[in-house]
Design a protein around this nucleic acid. Sequence first.
DNA 1: CGGGTCAGTCCAGAAACTGGACCGACTGGA
DNA 2: TCCAGTCGGTCCAGTTTCTGGACTGACCCG
Lengths: 146, 146
Amino acid sequence: MSDALEILGDRYSLPILRELMYGFHRFTDLAALTGAPRTLLTGRLRRLEEAGAITRTQYSQHPPRFEYHLTAAGADLLPVILTLKEWGERHTGDHEAKTVFVHRCGAALHPVVTCGACREDVRPGEFVVEDGPGGGHPSATDGTDH
Amino acid sequence: MSDALEILGDRYSLPILRELMYGFHRFTDLAALTGAPRTLLTGRLRRLEEAGAITRTQYSQHPPRFEYHLTAAGADLLPVILTLKEWGERHTGDHEAKTVFVHRCGAALHPVVTCGACREDVRPGEFVVEDGPGGGHPSATDGTDH
DNA sequence: CGGGTCAGTCCAGAAACTGGACCGACTGGA
DNA sequence: TCCAGTCGGTCCAGTTTCTGGACTGACCCG
């Protein structure tokens, strides 16, 4: 996760990706929609491109003009954005969401995280934290106490 | 989502919450595990407390000692952390995860986001973005350039 | 008595962010 | 033809934030 936050851990990267998902692809649009200063936006777009989350393609030759699109890896951030949006609406003052996601089933999309293996909902306390091959925590022990 | 990122949008807030989920509750542990400078950690913990994601409780009187615990709102960030962890392992060099989540069903926990209404997996393109009551995007939805 | 633990604070230098001005190559309208 | 506007940036100076090491004060353990 630390690696992910190295790329996404700031106030603008996820909003940029979100606007790309919404269908905006141009620099000026992204600047206006996210509120990011243009200098900062330039840097973030470069970093996201380098990380493989977006592509930068030239759509006009002589006045050089570019547009940004999600890669497969970038589109894969959809679950992160959905769950973050859901949390914001539930636990911050952000009750009147500016946008609503409507699933193809017709209902407003409220994401639920399930276990890929057994398909059951995942709740705090229903899993255990174990050390992986990369070497784990100093004294991870119990994981779920409270 | 912007409100959520106002609180969580930096390199340390989510790691702090993650370590709390893993069962670490003391200032020094959090500093060591996240790598956050102590001054910064102090600020983040105050902000998360103010946002209602964690509580700070005194467990020793005379040498004042405190420990931090997740509130219900904080625990509700589990889906965000799970999906972010999953993305990091899939799309960054973070293949050898230091920790593995094992679901109570016995399998390694790979989160899948489903629609709360129809229970189907959510994939890019299987939903529509619409303006909500809060007033929406200038010209959202279609994705075609104007 | 000495060392360690714990939850911080303080400080100075480095890095990042901010917002406004500016740019060059066009395009559209009168 | 002239003028305003668009687009994707860059440049700059001032402000804020981050960083990491040193320090503190009350306790606990041997």
